[in-house]
Design a protein around this nucleic acid. Sequence first.
DNA 1: CTTTGGATCGTCT
DNA 2: GACGATCCAAAGG
Length: 201
Amino acid sequence: MRRLLEQDPVEVAPLLLNKVLMHEGVAGRIVEVEAYRGEHDPASHAFRGRTARNAVMFGPPGHLYVYFTYGMHYCCNVVCGPAGTAGAVLVRALAPLAGLDEMRARRPRARSERDYCSGPAKLCQALGIDRSLDGADLLARSSAVRLLDDGLQPPSGARLASGPRIGIPVESVTGLQPWRFWVSGDPNVSRRENRAGRVAV
DNA sequence: CTTTGGATCGTCT
DNA sequence: GACGATCCAAAGG
């Protein structure tokens, strides 16, 4: 798994679909992700170099990068690429798998199970992920938060969908890149598949 | 169903 | 001092 994550985030991103993210027994299957590169990606937190916030992005692959945004939300990424090079895959949505009661308690305003993890900040809330987990090794047995492979293969063919990343200005060069990947048709994906989405080869 | 605006504060200019 | 890799409620069709 570590070797897989050492590749370019754009290569890794679709391969993380159908993997499982778990924090203290509360878990979900990854159904939507976005790839972020480093210095050549204007949309990346690492575009302007290393800072205290994004330091983990420059570290070894397989660790968790958690950032705080909008004054109230956390979002989490799987760090990719070789150590010394910035790269990460933002986890945008999960299909709830375990700890559903815990998720409901942490997301009281959710109207249905679909509302538990259908967004990058929602899933962090549902799993109880915050800045204290920034830098955690997702592949270590001893970690509270882990990335697991339960044997289900990543989607391919028509089951894999891709499109432009969300919240990225389209006028920027990378804003048009189809670096958002999701499991086609999964109800937990953060935004419904629309004209922007297209099936990847 | 879609659109719009408010919340709220760490981070970087 | 401005601005988010967002979410939610409210309002309009």
